[in-house]
């Protein structure tokens, strides 16, 4: 008896076209990576970096708790509440605005040609960075939370419109046809056939976007659109690490709690 075992994996025969295909793909990817790496220069860490890291570590262990207990407009609790308020108002504004865009992008509502235009429109909105939207709105309505709400409200249409239109595309068309055959008006069809069917999914997606917008609202403050970002960037720029660390810690805790609540509601919904 022979002692050797047969190889389990049978090698697949490779035709030359497949090899060429792989060479082009992986080679191209490799070239892209090399090109990317060549452009990023490592200049070493700052001379002050060891001190900065030490100061950050010390601050992390002993953060600025006085700031946490300041219950005025300048305190941390107010900034956190404002961030949450921006996220809530922005998300739900965009949820309402997304519905017409979603209908425009849904193939089974407006037909194939119009839906392509609608889908492209939604992609364009999604591509526009919210931070730049925030800057544009700041120059229109002035710095503060309303600019943040507008930025989130517009930017979120990009994602919600896409997800909503997919939900509408996968719904049961029988109800819509039944209403049409009874002579239902377009508004009746929207409110009695389409929305009732997709509302659990729509709510779930809106909550998911709310989780994302919580993080976004925290960054919008960096450009002056209200919320926790403004005191954070100020603390980092002035190297006030105890204060920066308490903000980062509170941000992590808040986002984690909101994720947990929202995730639990989403599980119940769908």
């Amino acid at each position: 008896m022979e002692a050797h075992t047969e190889p389990i994996i049978v090698p697949k025969p490779l035709d030359p076209w497949k090899i060429l295909y792989r060479v082009v793909n992986y080679g191209g990817l490799l070239l892209l990576l090399v090109w990317g790496f060549l452009g990023i220069e490592y200049k070493g860490i700052m001379q002050t970096a060891p001190g900065t890291i030490q100061a950050m570590g010390r601050a992390f262990l002993r953060p600025d708790t006085v700031y946490l207990r300041t219950w005025t407009v300048d305190g941390l609790p107010y900034a956190v509440l404002e961030t949450i308020a921006i996220a809530i108002a922005g998300t739900f504004a965009s949820a309402f605005l997304s519905i017409p865009f979603a209908l425009l992008a849904a193939q089974n509502i407006v037909g194939e040609k119009v839906s392509k235009v609608g889908k492209f429109l939604v992609t364009m909105i999604r591509t526009f960075p919210e931070l730049i939207l925030a800057l544009i709105f700041i120059s229109i309505v002035g710095p503060g939370a309303p600019a943040g709400i507008l930025a989130l409200g517009i930017h979120s249409i990009g994602m919600l419109g896409k997800l909503f239109s997919e939900a509408i595309e996968s719904m049961d068309m029988g109800v819509k046809e039944a209403l049409e055959s009874c002579g239902g008006s377009p508004f009746e069809i929207l409110f009695r056939a389409i929305l009732p069917q997709v509302s659990p999914e729509l709510t779930s997606y809106t909550l998911y976007r709310f989780e994302i917008n919580m993080r976004a609202a925290a960054t919008l403050g960096l450009v002056g659109a209200g919320g926790i970002g403004a005191p954070l960037i100020f603390a980092i720029r002035t190297r006030a690490w105890p204060r920066a660390m308490i903000i980062v810690i509170v941000l992590i805790v808040t986002v984690t709690i909101i994720d947990a609540i929202s995730g639990r509601i989403r599980k119940k919904l769908v």
């Binding site: 990023i40 200049k43 700052m46 970096a49 976004a216 925290a218 960054t219 970002g229 980092i236």
Partner: peptide, 21 residues
Amino acid sequence: RTIPAMVLASLFVAIFGIGAF
């Protein structure tokens, strides 16, 4: 995942200096 990329970037700028790195 809870820390936004912008916040990470501003912390890294304090360590590695201004620039693409």
